[in-house]
């Protein structure tokens, strides 16, 4: 079984803060990390590898520094890492990104399963996975909670707002993952040594069988008109800062009754 897991390096959005005075982003000290949902996809792939035996190739599109997350994935148990990096890809929106990544997946070839995280936490679009599946001409299952292989088919559990569904599909298939069945594993010492020695091959747009006009800014139908920071509404707060908790609870309770938030 051959599995390709697509990873993205993202800024740790939890660590991005707003400077309350200037209302601008404070990015100093914000680390770049492996997108948390991609880590869940990687763990799911590694669990399949443990159980069924599989070659797991990790693929990322980004700047050369994104090699870090490929090495991290190899340390966790992936077999091979490939970086797709080219200035011509800068400014790609989800459509252009999916065209480039799908071309890279085709270039790697011979895959049974392509996996992505449900969404990347910097853009939160959840679009690149399904768009890749369309370009590859293969079926997709999004938001997986469990992926198994049984009787020659992948069996995937996903949920929407109203139900939990169990779906089956033969290879090739693209799955986006919300959560792995267990916490993503840590890298082993042996894995770290392997990662240190691993040679990451780099692909450029010239290596892919695509028209360069379809990627980067020229291939992106969406454009940013403006970017702004959300207005934080001014709220009249009644915050009780009282050491005696009995007194504090009484004060809050009285206010809530007065405001008819608590009623009989």
């Amino acid at each position: 079984m051959n599995i390709i897991v697509c990873l993205k390096q993202v800024p740790d959005t939890e660590a991005v803060k707003l400077n309350p005075e200037t209302n601008t982003l404070v990015r100093d000290g914000v680390e770049n990390i492996m997108n948390p949902f991609d880590r869940q996809a990687l763990e799911t792939a590694l669990m399949l590898k443990d159980k069924e035996g599989a070659k797991v190739t990790v693929l990322t599109m980004g700047l050369p520094q994104a090699t870090d997350i490929l090495k991290e994935a190899i340390a966790m148990g992936a077999d091979d890492g490939i970086l797709l990096s080219d200035r011509a890809l800068a400014g790609s929106d989800t459509l252009a990104t999916s065209i480039a990544l799908a071309a890279a997946v085709k270039h790697i070839g011979g895959y049974d399963l392509v996996m992505c995280g449900k969404q990347a936490v910097d853009g939160d679009t959840a679009q690149v996975g399904p768009e890749m599946a369309e370009h590859l001409g293969i079926p997709q299952i999004t938001g997986a909670l469990k992926v198994e292989f049984a009787d020659g088919r992948f069996v995937v559990v996903r949920e929407n707002e109203s139900s939990v569904q169990t779906l089956a599909c033969a290879a090739p298939l693209l799955v986006t993952v919300t959560r792995a069945e267990k916490e993503p594993r840590f890298a082993s010492i042996k894995g770290k040594m392997k990662a240190r020695k691993a040679v990451i091959s780099t692909l450029t747009v010239a290596d892919l069988a695509i028209d360069t006009k379809l990627v980067g800014l020229s291939g992106s139908p969406t454009k940013v008109k403006k970017v702004f920071t959300p207005e934080v509404p001014v709220v009249e707060s009644e915050i009780i800062n009282e050491e005696d908790t009995d007194k504090a609870v009484d004060m809050l309770f009285d206010k809530l009754v007065e405001a008819k938030i608590i009623t009989r």
């Binding site: 959005t13 939890e14 982003l25 910097d122 939160d124 403006k226 970017v227 702004f228 920071t229 959300p230």
Partner: peptide
């Protein structure tokens, strides 16, 4: 975008 830190049109 960026975890809700900014809005983009």
């Amino acid at each position: 975008a960026l975890g809700g830190n900014i809005l983009a049109t």
